[in-house]
Amino acid sequence: MTKSLHGTPRSSTILWATLLLATFLTWSMGALGETGRWGVAALAVISFWKGAVIILDFMALRHAPLLWRAITMGWMIVVWAVIAIAYIKGLAQ
């Protein structure tokens, strides 16, 4: 059976609630003064996952031709990799 490109109200509501929960988690990490490379690594992983939900589910690229999915997800991978490299470079100072 085929299904909608944009998911169901139920699936998108669950994703939205999970995104809000992840936002609360990262906000509380900041509020508690969570620092250090592991805190930053966790923050980056959570933020990457949130971006992936937007790209794959909200932008509906999960059902797009592979090339478009690869370009957009690839963009996010490169951006976070550059941020990580710069962060590590900063730690070495």
Partner: peptide, 10 residues
């Protein structure tokens, strides 16, 4: 009728 049978860019 709009449901996708294959990959489609929204």
């Amino acid at each position: 009728a709009h449901v996708h049978a294959g990959p489609r860019l929204a």
